[in-house]
Design a protein around this nucleic acid. Structure first.
Lengths: 139, 139
DNA sequence: ATAAATGCAAAGCATTTGCAACCAT
DNA sequence: ATGGTTGCAAATGCTTTGCATTTAT
């Protein structure tokens, strides 16, 4: 789940262009959009290279991936809005019993100018079962 | 993107069992896990039926789907943690310029007992371009 | 020279969909 | 009887991967 280590990384024209495309937009593009864009400069690049490099950029902290922790949807029988904790180690998702901060919606609405209906909040870290206690502070 | 309207919905044994399986666990199962579980009671049910009914349950507010707004990953060239707004109408994702609430991590850690490293917060609603102004209150 | 990175195509997976049969209303 | 629902299988779409070749070091 966490293959964050990579011996060393070579600089390639492809990765350079991908990163500059990513930095040059605020549209939170999909991999395919990046592909189409990069192709204008490197017509022979392949989608596989886009994916491989996006992953490298995310793992090395140069880009953010916007998606839920899991690669597939998970479902919750409790339809009321509540928060979740996802363990980055084992992938388990837990409910968090803490009050929903409604004030955040108003704050975001003022900051963005968009009509905010609700929000979703997920916490990430190491769960108790994986050795990450709330007060452990192992590292 | 929003096919929330459905003429009327019939009650079926399949949907009943799916909902009870969903209500009977707190593991935030995947569609496939639900499938395996429901199969113990209805051996002939198909995965397609699971997916169709999970969608109905989510659309009718009886269950929650845990996933990012989009069906595919989106990438952000800004690697610093910040919040996003996703329009439920057009699917566009916008950055929100508001301070990251670090206090939330401590609160979640206390409430959950897990070691929290960071959190992700997304707001949902109607963006300005789709007619949802911050003060509009159209409805 | 050496191993990382690429392009290409095939494969993998989660999810959706077309369709004939079925069944709740 | 009507049309929503199902089971099945094929299809779709995003993402990954195997491999021979290229290329940064």
């Amino acid at each position: 789940m966490s293959e964050t280590k990579r011996g060393f990384v070579r600089n390639t024209k492809q990765r350079e262009v991908i990163l500059s495309v990513l930095r040059g937009t605020d549209t939170h593009p999909t991999a395919d959009w990046v592909y189409q864009e990069v192709r204008k400069e490197l017509p022979n690049i392949s989608l596989g290279t886009i994916y491989r490099n996006l992953r490298i950029l995310v793992e090395s902290g140069q880009a953010l991936e916007l998606s839920f922790s899991s690669d597939c949807s998970r479902f919750d029988g409790n339809p009321e809005n509540h928060y979740h904790f996802a363990c980055t180690e084992c992938g388990n998702v837990y409910d968090i019993d803490m009050p929903v901060a409604q004030g955040l919606d108003a704050e975001a609405e003022k900051a963005s100018g968009h009509k905010v209906m609700f929000h979703r909040l997920e916490f990430y870290g190491i769960c108790q079962a994986c050795g990450g206690g709330a007060d452990g502070d192992l590292q």
